[in-house]
Design a protein around this nucleic acid. Structure first.
Lengths: 310, 310
DNA sequence: GAGGCGTATTTGTCCAGGACAAATTGACGG
DNA sequence: CCGTCAATTTGTCCTGGACAAATACGCCTC
């Protein structure tokens, strides 16, 4: 007989917030309004979430992000939620289907070395540009979807991220070392404090590197005033910010607006990533596709040349 | 005349949490207990923090992180806080004093390319082993201390981390590709969910790689049951966990004990990092120095050989 | 039927003030 | 000098109420 609330599988509200990306206040108010989640309590009345409920919360987060209203979906069974999810996440990039299947197969076999080889082979075949702009996002999406369908475990997603990062970073290094002399624009890369994902940032860095830009990465999770300070210090021309669905679109826009006010008008702000509701606004550009970076750098250089000659 | 509460320089509690890294609950309870911060209120009684108070909060966070008690420092003037800040962080490793000064100078000049060159030169001069085991920790400590003293900004610390990671990861790749054939032990690397720092993990990976081990990294912040699942799936011989002072020693020990119960006795658990109170216990080893890894791998192989022949 | 606009509903975030566990300090004895 | 236990400090969690911002809905016009 299986104990449904196995002690080792209970999580505190802080752990659930970390794990699911749902703020504590939201977890509590959902419980109050919709009756779910319905955590156990320890002797001091603190919430203890069973692993099954945490899994359901992850599904809910994806659905809400995709546009469903919490009032309509919170409280439904996992089966119903899965049905809804399947209707939402129609895989957009069928092109890389074969590669994705191969990667998922290797992840299923826990074959780290094989995975690295395949990624390197893909890089060689497609070139750095297509690898970062097309294959990378496609594979990341496929792996994320497989995880949300329960086909792979978190540690397998971690493994993929780690191997992909390694391969891509090596390629960027190689491209920086050899090849074109580096010239402007000078681009500063980072993410906002709520955004811990480095993959999107790295893929963007690859695209800029291919265009011969001067790139400086601050890594992930830099406070906004610090990004502004770094922009001034490094005399950056462009701030490149990467977003995933980890961060609500509104917070992203608020952050970008705050950042806009902190740096001179001459510094451009380019935002990109898989953040559904992120729309361009006065003061910053939004890139839906990594492939749009290359022409945009060309445009920037034309503008810069005009400005210089005038 | 300067308006001390200029409207454009007021921040909501959520914004302060993001920028200072102090949770909302902590901001409220400091206000209640110590009378600081002392934010204005909008018409709906929501806190609005003036920029000056936010700056002071940043100083306070540094001091608290360096070991000062909030009750002793919250409420003091900026001048007093600055004096205290200058006293923290006496560099322990004087050996790498010259290198650290050079790195800090480059950070001060925002010279990313120069920094990369210096790190590469250090790597070549010292070799991967000494670079990862001695120079890396020494530089990281010096940079962290400089931040505590307010000599550099967070974005400069990020820049250092990013450049160091790049250099070290390239070196690990090179060492893996060429050189010895890989053989056991098979080592799985990760950190606990509360631990986002990747540098220690990477330095450990370098040490194991030099010994010719089969290394698999899951990256940072893997849930404990997932680490256990990955250990079984990959048939790992050793789980290598990295800790910083980010994580309280007791939580680390609790996590290690939990992990111990989830994996077979034959899998060893090796913990390391700059976590002050972390003591070895039955079931796992604790490494104070990265240089202790090499001999420990040798011991493991001897033990494995004995076990096999018996 | 498509599109703009004002109103109703939903939803996330904030507040206060109390409580207590976890972490740290300090006192005490070996 | 070091380990153990009690006192204190500190961070996190709790409840339940409130409301603004976001979203959906009804209505009107073209």
């Amino acid at each position: 007989m299986t104990n449904t609330s196995d002690l080792s599988r209970l999580m505190s509200i802080a752990a659930v917030e970390r794990d699911c990306g749902l703020p504590k206040d939201t977890l509590r108010v959902w419980e109050r309004r919709y009756g779910f989640p319905n955590p156990l309590r320890d002797r001091h009345d603190e919430r203890l979430y069973p692993a099954e409920q945490v899994a359901t919360l992850r599904l809910l987060r994806r659905l809400v992000e995709a546009g469903h209203r919490p009032g309509k979906v919170v409280g439904r069974s996992d089966e119903e939620l899965s049905v809804l999810l399947r209707q939402v996440g129609v895989p957009a990039r069928q092109i890389i289907g074969a590669e994705a299947r191969q990667v998922l197969k290797l992840l299923g076999a826990y074959d780290a070395a094989g995975l690295r080889e395949v990624l390197n082979a893909l890089l060689m075949r497609a070139g750095l540009g297509a690898f970062a702009a097309e294959i990378g996002p496609g594979l990341a999406e496929a792996v994320g979807a497989a995880w949300s369908r329960g086909e792979i475990e978190i540690h397998q997603e971690h493994l993929f991220t780690e191997q992909f990062t390694t391969v891509l970073r090596s390629a960027i290094n190689a491209a920086q070392g050899a090849g074109l002399p580096r010239r402007r624009p000078r681009v500063l890369f980072s993410t906002f404090p709520q955004e811990p994902h480095a993959l999107g940032l790295l893929m963007a860095e690859a695209m800029f590197t291919l265009e011969g830009c001067l790139g400086i990465s601050l890594g992930v999770q830099t406070p906004i005033p610090e990004i502004a300070a770094a922009a001034r210090a490094h005399e950056a021309d462009i701030l490149a910010l990467s977003f995933s669905s980890m961060i609500p679109a509104l917070q992203a826009i608020a952050g970008l607006t705050e950042l806009r006010a902190l740096v001179p008008e001459t510094v451009e702000i380019w935002a990109g990533g898989a953040c559904p509701g992120l729309r361009p606004k006065a003061g910053f550009l939004v890139f839906r596709e990594l492939s749009a970076i290359a022409p945009a750098v060309g445009d920037w250089r034309s503008r810069a040349a005009v400005a210089r000659s005038s």
